[in-house]
Amino acid sequence: MRHLFKLDPAKVLPDGAVDRLVRSGTDGFIIGGSDGLQVGAVQALFRSFATWDLPVFMEVSDEAMVMPGASEYLIPMVLNTTDVEWLLGAHHRIVKQYGDFIPWPHVLVEGYCILNPDAKAANLAKANTNLTEGDVAAYASIAENMLQLPIFYVEYSGVFGDKRMLQAARSELVNTKLWYGGGIRTVAQAREMAEIADVIIVGNVLYEDFEQALETASAIR
């Protein structure tokens, strides 16, 4: 797996988008968002992609994202948060309420490191984005060695990130996969970050320049 499209239930894709996306060469889809999540919109988006032979990951950042049938459930844990709510607080509540129904073999925890101070996700999660390369490397090492997470996600959410930060994370990871998301709008940017990250995630450009977004899927084969 090298490329994923991230779909926001609060936004509208162009007509005919689903068929073109599943045939684009992408490895799968993440359904997730940070605000404006409605259960009906989440379910409709999931049903549009669930019938195709590509994995659909549900990123459970809100109770609206709790629904059966996904290939995997991604649980974000914001490692650089200043609020325990986004480290384990919300997780504890959801497990307490839905624990008997959680398909644990299909749950993957993402260790997020959010680095764009202006992103909604950074504000929501109260992330400390004033980090050095050494800070990012340390968070990556925690994800790999202390928490043994399957995914370390460097997130710039809307802006193209600093390769040095991504490389700092890369230097610490062996078993934990490095995912990158943020500001990928061109084939060149997709290839640049794919040289370092195991998986790149393309999101916002789907709603800004759909044709350009499609090109990123085949750019890193």
Rank of each mutant, 00 (worst) to 15 (best):
R2G: 02
L4H: 04
L7P: 01
P9R: 12
V12H: 09
V12A: 15
D15R: 10
A17Y: 03
D19L: 13
R20N: 07
R20D: 10
D35Y: 11
Q38R: 15
Q38H: 13
V39K: 15
G40L: 13
Q43S: 05
L45R: 01
R47P: 01
D53P: 00
L54Q: 07
F57Y: 09
V66H: 00
I75A: 09
P76S: 11
T82L: 15
D83E: 12
E85M: 08
W86N: 07
L87H: 04
L88H: 10
A90Q: 15
H91N: 14
D100I: 08
I102Y: 00
P103M: 15
W104R: 14
V109K: 13
G111L: 12
G111W: 06
I114M: 05
L115N: 07
P117S: 07
P117Q: 12
A125E: 02
A127D: 09
N130W: 02
T132Q: 12
G134H: 07
A137N: 02
A138L: 13
S141R: 15
M146A: 14
L147H: 02
F152V: 11
V154S: 07
E155M: 04
G158H: 04
F160P: 01
M165G: 02
A168D: 06
A169S: 12
R170V: 02
E172M: 15
E172V: 06
L173A: 06
G183R: 12
I184R: 03
I184C: 06
T186V: 07
M193F: 09
E195G: 02
I196D: 09
I196H: 10
A197T: 07
V199T: 15
G203E: 00
V205R: 11
E208I: 06
F210V: 13
A213G: 10
L214G: 05
A217R: 05
R221K: 14
